[in-house]
Simulated scan of single mutants.
Amino acid sequence: MTKTSAPISQEATDTTGTARADAGLTPLGDADTTMKTLRPEPSSQLVVTGVRLGTHEGFDRVVFDLTGDGAPGWFIDYNDRPVQQGSGFPIEFPGDSALEVNIDGTTYPFTLGIDPPQIGTTVGPGPIVAGVTSSGSFEGRTQFVIGVNGGKHPYSVQTLDNPSRLVIDILRR
């Protein structure tokens, strides 16, 4: 996983923050269907403040906006039956496959003196991503499930800076 500082252009999004299909973006990184993991920086204290989705020629993009200090880690993999961390309750998600996203190096919003973001479930924009469901934070990890249509698709994971974001590109097969 390569870290890059290329921002997502404001011209590539509409007024809701959803990427336009005609923005001409290309996928970041190398995509496949295998598990992806990276440890966070030891002193990271980040909060996921929002989720943005976009559809582009050949792929859908999910962007997790972050605030705080440090760089995130992650544990991301397809999971047939995702469950909520801490409780073990099943997580309902749109679509027919679940790409479970665990963002590491996170903290509770009150630690940073900010109000808790109200993320919930974000409806997907394109043929691949049906939606993203937030499952909350627990012990330094914030959990989401990306509901994917059409089975398991190759995906890549990248971080971007200024502002800090975790970007997942999911390719059409």
Rank of each mutant, 00 (worst) to 15 (best):
R172N: 15
S44V: 05
L38A: 09
D60N: 12
Q85W: 01
G120C: 15
G88V: 07
G131K: 09
P72Q: 12
P40V: 03
Q143A: 01
T37N: 13
P94N: 12
Q158Y: 07
Y108C: 00
G17P: 10
T142Q: 01
D60S: 11
F59A: 08
V157A: 11
T133V: 13
F144H: 15
G95T: 07
F110T: 10
P116V: 05
L171E: 15
G58E: 10
V62W: 07
I8E: 13
L112C: 01
D115A: 13
Q143T: 06
F144L: 09
S164G: 10
G150E: 14
P163L: 01
V148A: 09
P117N: 06
F138E: 02
S97M: 08
P116T: 15
P42D: 07
F59D: 14
P40W: 04
P40S: 02
R81C: 02
L46K: 03
S44C: 01
T159I: 14
Y78W: 00
D169A: 10
N79S: 00
E139R: 00
S137F: 02
Q45F: 03
T159P: 00
D115N: 13
Y78S: 11
N149H: 08
D96C: 08
N102K: 06
G131S: 08
P116L: 04
T15W: 13
I170Q: 09
I76C: 02
V123M: 14
A23T: 13
P154A: 10
H153S: 12
P154M: 10
I114E: 00
N102Q: 04
I146M: 04
T4M: 11
F89Y: 10
A6L: 07
F75D: 14
G124Y: 04
R61C: 10
E11F: 11
E41I: 05
G120A: 14
R20D: 03
T106L: 04
Y108G: 05
T159G: 09
Y155W: 08
A6F: 02
P109Y: 04
H56M: 06
Q143P: 03
G29N: 08
T4C: 05
G113C: 05
P42F: 01
S137Y: 00
A98T: 02
T16Q: 13
E100G: 05
H153W: 08
F138T: 02
R39V: 01
I103G: 03
V145N: 02
P94D: 14
A19W: 14
V47P: 03
T37P: 05
S156Y: 14
V63Q: 12
P27M: 10
I103L: 00
D80Y: 12
L38G: 00
D30C: 07
T121C: 12
L166G: 11
V157F: 07
I91M: 03
D30K: 10
Y108T: 05
T15M: 12
T159S: 15
F138K: 08
D77P: 01
T37C: 03
P127D: 11
R39A: 08
T106N: 02
S9W: 07
N102H: 03
R20H: 10
G131Y: 13
R61I: 10
I119N: 12
R173C: 03
V62E: 14
D22G: 04
S156P: 09
